[in-house]
Design a protein around this nucleic acid. Structure first.
Lengths: 203, 203
DNA sequence: TGTAACTGAGACAAGGTGTCTCGTAGGATT
DNA sequence: AATCCTACGAGACACCTTGTCTCAGTTACA
């Protein structure tokens, strides 16, 4: 393994990771080989081997640059923060990049330990954020009680996920808003008590 | 290509497809090669090539045996049928088989035309079923109006999907029941009008 | 029992993979 | 400016996999 600090090496590593990311997005994880990556990155084949002798590690390194931030500590009501962040995630999922990376991670996580850890890290981070934010919201009286964070996460992200991954359609703002409403309303102190049909759109 | 009708060929084809299915489930789609399949199926490598010269077609043929039936025409209320079928799907997803097949199809659908068609066929079938069932339910007065079938599908399956694929936990019956409740309640004629916290569990 | 379909085994070329060794370019150190 | 020294691309090499053959043996069915 070469020194990471040297700018020469750094540049190669970056070019390689960018190439892998591009390959995953455009041609799928199956197309990622040392040879293909070297061509795509414009570096020698040996250079790719030098930095990542194992293809698995190369894939993982590229996938690890995927971020899925959600409910990072911030100000505002729980309802508002959830809505804002889910809209942002919807926008990111609507772009092909995050969708293909996510699908790849999920598929690989079933058999590859590193991908599984990566997936779990991303999910746990978000779940922790939800837990903290929910407890705060209970303290301020916004929520009646703290919902189970993992269930809430599944109810929020799930519909968006299926919309993109299975149905292959773009996520609309109205859809996000309805998902937030349906998932959060039961827990909100001033939630509706008798609504018209679920097509409630705030904003 | 060999004749499909001959029992000899039929047996080989079946053994091969079973092997592919097993490989996808246990080692992932990346492990599916003509050679590996031949070993696993206990047939000659040339036999696999004979039946499926293209690896893509072999994978697709195996994946096509995946079924995702939901809301097939049947009697009963829309609410009850949805609940029953989603519970069945949850059970199927809890087993590793359907989960890995589904993850594979979704990942491959991004770059492989055949996988995309397969995915779309499965989804469209379910969506059509929902549309028909919803219209019936409107006619009987069970629903106030017909919900958009694709949105409803995403709201029903999404949380289960994330639960299994991202969070890697088993889907509980209570969770399914809550998902059905949250997705359908706004559309039900005699839906709740002022409930306690979303943790409603029928059954 | 004959015949055509199908089989497994294995030979073969072509191409990909992983590991070297070279000579060299170009930041760091002095 | 001179000198290290790291990382580089290029390419040689043995090894393995892939896709395509051929061929002799086996199986279903007439």
């Amino acid at each position: 393994m070469t020194s990471v600090s040297r700018p020469q090496a750094q540049r190669s590593r970056l070019a390689i990771l960018d190439a892998v990311t591009r390959l995953i997005r455009d041609e799928g994880a199956a197309s990622v080989t040392h040879q293909r990556v070297a061509e795509e990155a414009g570096v020698g084949r040996a250079t790719v081997y030098r930095h990542w002798p194992q293809l698995v590690d190369l894939l993982t390194a590229a996938l690890q640059r995927t971020s899925l931030s959600f409910l990072e500590p911030a100000s505002g009501t729980f309802r508002h923060r959830t809505s804002t962040d889910l809209h942002r995630m919807a926008r990111e999922l609507n772009a092909p990049h995050l969708t293909s990376m996510a699908a790849t991670i999920v598929e690989r996580a079933q058999f590859d330990e590193a991908s599984r850890r990566l997936r779990d890290r991303l999910v746990n981070e978000i779940t922790d954020n939800i837990t903290i934010a929910a407890l705060d919201a209970v303290a301020t009286g916004e929520l009646r009680a703290a919902p189970p964070a993992d269930d809430l996460l599944a109810e929020l992200i799930g519909p968006l996920w299926v919309c993109r991954m299975l149905q292959n359609r773009l996520i609309t703002e109205a859809f996000v808003e309805r998902v937030v409403y349906q998932a959060l309303d039961p827990w909100l102190t001033n939630g509706s008590d008798g609504h018209e049909g679920g097509n409630v759109v705030t904003s």
